[in-house]
Structures are given as C-alpha cells and as structure tokens.
C-alpha cells in the first residue's frame, strides 16, 4: 500500500483554476521531486496536502486512510477547515519546510524545535491521564479476562503519543539537531544564523514532529548559491535514512540524483512523470522538453530564466 495516494486534486482561486486534477502516489521511503516553471501550481499542491488550502475536488489518503475528500468536504456540515482538532491531527501526517523558513525569531534554535511538540506532549499527557481513569473504571466493571484485554487494547490506542516524556522529546530534538549539524547552535537565535543554517533548523523542526511525509517548497530558493549545498546535503541524508519526501525544487541536478520519481507540472497538470531518467533524458511532452532545455541552458549560464 502506498504511503500517500493523491487522486484528482483540483483547486481554484476565484475563477482561476490552479490545479486541474493531480494524481500521484508515493511509497514509503521514496522521494518525489516536483519541477515546473513558476506559477504552475507546485506550492498550491503542497499547501493542499498540508491543509493550508482545501482542495475543491479530489482525495488524499495516507497509509490507506482517507484523510481528505473534496466531494465530502463540499457537503459536510462541519467543514474540516473549521474543525481545529481534527485538522491538526490530519496535518501532523505531513511536515512542510517553507521557502523562507518561517522560524520563530523570538525563540532559540532548540526552542524552535521544542515549542510545538512540547505543547502537544502536555495535552497528550493530560488526555492520557483522563483515558487511564476511564480505563480503570471500565476494567472494574469487566468480568472476564477477555473483556479486560479488549478494554486495554481499546485504550492503548488513546494513550499512544509521540513521546513518552519531556526527556525523550529533548533527546530527540538534540539528536535531530546533530543530524542537521547544528547542535552547537542550539542556544542561538535564528537571526544569528545564515540562511542555510536557518533552513536546516526549519527542517529539524519539521522532523521532530515525526511526519509521515515531509514536504519541501523550494527549500533553497531563498538562499545564496553557496549555501544551497548544505541544505541539499541534509535532504540527501534524510533520503538515506528512508524519510518519505516531496521536494519542489529548481535544482535539476539534485532532482535527478536524489528523487525516485520526478513530476513535471505545467499549468496545473502533471505533464510528465516517471523516473528521473525517463523525465530528464526521454521526456515525451513538448512542454517538458522545452522546460528542461531552458533549465539546462540556465544552469550553463547562457540563459537567465527566473
């Protein structure tokens, strides 16, 4: 079963149709690179996956669970948009690294990593306490051993959480900072870091939430050329440790090396999809050919398209 299954995603803003039916799927541990000229709808697609926008049509399923159905959302009495609790739960399947980092400027690197998960942990612990009390009550009523086992199983699901305690969370945050090579910057503020370092913090911050699928929206576009390498290196290492990722990027070479699949988008549709070899070496569509030619010219410096 695919970890992510996206079917028929459509999205319009007013009268402009930005996504015109996007289908793709992603296996666990795979990396998909999404390329395409600007305005083709790549950001909008990622935002739909992270529920920052709500697709008008289409479905999103993660590990077989239907997370979103545009048709159902249209007629739903209580829209997902307005159901804060459910929305947060669904969002946590995904992580998103923004083009311009969006770190919290008033928090240290470590605090940036810890803020969301520690708030999450606190509310999880409260919920667990409530659930345990309920379970005890239910257990007292239960007579047979089988019933008790059943009850325990039922509540185990409710008590489950990402981190056992604050200690474990902190350890994970430290380990993650080590992975992105910034453990010695843990007490610095974002403004004291270079763009590349800031983006690596943003990646670490997303990782600590343990997303099933990590999305990147042009993670190196806001960086000076000499700083893109360090960020791409981190993403490469994540691939080696089997992180499932969707990377929107203009770095063609990177896409070719790292991605298992490449999607070329134009005007809200997937024009071309396949292995890097298929897309880069044997593109079938004229648009894809033209795009790739212009990009490789740009890379050679003969052309300066966007």
């Amino acid at each position: 079963m695919s970890i992510l299954e996206v079917k028929g995603i459509k999205k319009s803003f007013g009268s402009t149709e930005v996504l015109k039916g996007i289908d793709f799927s992603l296996e666990k541990g795979e990396v998909i690179a999404i390329i395409g000229s600007s305005g083709s709808g790549k950001t909008t697609l990622l935002r739909c996956l992270n529920f920052l926008e709500f697709a008008d049509e289409g479905t999103i399923s993660v590990s077989g669970e239907l997370l979103y159905d545009g048709a159902a959302e249209k007629v739903a009495k209580k829209k997902l948009k307005n159901n804060d609790k459910l929305l947060r739960k669904k969002r946590l399947h995904f992580g998103l690294v923004f083009q311009n980092f969006n770190l919290f400027p008033h928090k240290t690197v470590m605090a940036n990593l810890l803020l969301a998960p520690s708030l999450q942990l606190k509310s999880d612990l409260r919920a667990a306490k409530r659930a345990e009390k309920q379970m005890d009550r239910a257990l007292k009523k239960a007579s047979t051993e089988e019933e008790k086992a059943e009850i325990k199983k039922l509540f185990a699901e409710k008590i489950k959480r990402d981190y056992k305690d604050a200690e474990e969370l902190r350890a994970k945050a430290e380990e993650t900072l080590r992975r992105v090579g910034l453990i010695d910057k843990r007490n610095n503020y974002p403004c004291q870091l270079s763009g590349g370092q800031q983006q690596r913090v943003a990646i670490a911050r997303a990782l600590v939430m343990n997303p099933d699928i990590l999305c990147f929206d042009e993670p190196t576009s806001a960086l000076d050329p000499e700083l893109t390498g360090e960020v791409l290196k981190v993403i490469r290492e994540l691939k080696d440790s089997d992180t499932t990722m969707i990377v929107v990027t203009h770095e063609m070479e990177f896409a070719r090396d790292v991605a298992d699949k490449v999607i070329y988008m134009a005007d809200g549709v997937i024009e071309e999809a396949g292995t890097p070899e298929e897309v880069f070496l044997h593109p079938k569509s004229e648009k894809a050919k033209a795009f790739l030619t212009s990009r490789s010219n740009a890379a050679k410096g003969t052309d300066d398209l966007d």
């Binding site: 992270n50 529920f51 920052l52 804060d84 947060r88 739960k89 969002r91 946590l92 995904f94 992580g95 998103l96 923004f98 311009n100 969006n102 770190l103 919290f104 008033h106 803020l115 969301a116 998960p117 708030l119 999450q120 911050r205 997303a206 939430m209």
Partner: peptide, 21 residues
C-alpha cells in the same frame, strides 16, 4: 502570515499560536 502557517503545519492550536508565537 508565514508565522501562522508554520504553527499550523506543526499542529499548534490557534490559542497556542497567539500566546506563544
């Protein structure tokens, strides 16, 4: 807007977003 969106994708509530960020 990016600050609100960063909080949203990290699963923070509206209240947490306002008071902590």
């Amino acid at each position: 807007k990016g600050q609100y969106e960063a909080c949203a994708v990290l699963g923070m509530t509206k209240g947490q977003t306002f008071f902590h960020v």
